[in-house]
Simulated assay, not measured.
Amino acid sequence: MPNESNIKNQVSIMDIDFINMTKSEFLHDHIYPRLSSEDKCFVVTANPEIVMRTRDEAAYKAIVEKADYVVPDGAGVVMASKMINKPLKERIPGFELTISLLEHAEAQGLSCYFLGAKEYVIEKMVPEVKKRYPNLKIAGQQHGFFALDDSSVTEEIIATKPDVVFVALGSPRQETWISKYIDQFSKGLFIGVGGSFDVLAGEVKRAPDKWIKYNLEWLYRLLKEPFRLKRFLKSIEFMIRMVLKRK
């Protein structure tokens, strides 16, 4: 990782280095200062599925390793850290990071760009964000149905000079886009946020607090969205491999 020397506490899981700090420590000690200094930053919010993809696809692993920070977004990652006796302090969900960043951006007068999701979702989400954060500066928006090689999309985003770019293209597309184009920007925090736009738009509901507290949000999502079964099986494979590795 480019800034690995600045991160003293990490846990390596299947050759991926995860930050080992609380969400508050991560934001206040790393992210907010970098936003203040307009220092470019690439954040990957990684769950077991993403870790498994890095194992299967060398090109994708190189992209994740290029990130400044890999955040443990997934109960399976936290469980795996305990299996190897290097427990992560806490799970840091990408959606919660999104909310914290929106709050900080509104308070500090920073601008945000929203990239990704279906067109009707982002059209519904942006007004909801404006309603929730009335003083937030919104640099722009673009749905996720475009070719990654379409540089005109990137040029339009660059022209808005955003401080934070939320990329909700799903993995591996969102990390691929960030890696491909981040060097063309002069500043900005770039973070892959998966399905967060759907939640902000009200299209998908987060699990109740008790489910989240006991790291069962994945089960809630699976029960509500059975089509996630294939992704869930990847998480099961991840856990099996961690158990076998421990033995």
Rank of each mutant, 00 (worst) to 15 (best):
M1D: 05
E4P: 00
N6D: 14
K8A: 15
Q10N: 10
I16N: 08
F18H: 05
I19W: 05
F26A: 12
L27Q: 10
Y32L: 05
L35A: 13
L35K: 12
S36C: 11
S36M: 13
E38L: 10
K40Y: 11
V43D: 00
V44T: 03
A46M: 06
I50P: 02
V51F: 10
V51H: 10
R53P: 00
D56W: 04
D56I: 02
A58K: 14
A59L: 12
K61Q: 12
K61P: 04
K66Y: 11
D68I: 04
Y69K: 04
V70E: 06
D73Y: 06
D73N: 07
G74D: 03
G76W: 04
M79R: 13
A80L: 08
S81R: 07
S81G: 02
M83N: 02
M83V: 02
K86S: 12
L88F: 05
K89T: 01
R91H: 01
E96S: 09
E96M: 07
I99H: 11
S100I: 06
L101C: 07
G109R: 12
G109H: 11
G109P: 00
L110G: 01
S111R: 06
S111A: 08
S111F: 07
Y113Q: 08
L115A: 04
A117P: 02
A117R: 06
A117V: 02
K118I: 00
E119Q: 13
V121L: 08
I122A: 04
M125Y: 09
V126T: 13
K131A: 14
Y133K: 08
K137S: 13
A139F: 11
A139I: 07
Q141F: 13
Q142R: 14
G144D: 10
F145N: 10
F146L: 03
L148H: 10
D149P: 00
D150M: 09
S151Q: 12
S151E: 15
S151Y: 09
T154L: 08
I158G: 07
D163M: 08
V164S: 07
V165D: 06
F166C: 04
L169T: 02
S171Q: 11
Q174K: 06
Q174C: 04
Q174S: 02
T176S: 13
I178V: 14
Y181Q: 05
D183V: 05
Q184W: 15
Q184N: 13
F185Y: 13
G188C: 03
L189A: 08
G194I: 06
G194Q: 09
D198P: 07
L200F: 13
G202A: 11
R206A: 05
P208Q: 10
D209V: 11
D209P: 01
K210F: 15
W211H: 07
N215A: 01
E217T: 05
E217Y: 08
W218Y: 01
L219G: 05
L219S: 01
R228H: 02
I236W: 13
F238C: 08
I240A: 12
V243L: 15
V243F: 15
L244E: 12
K245Q: 15
R246Q: 14
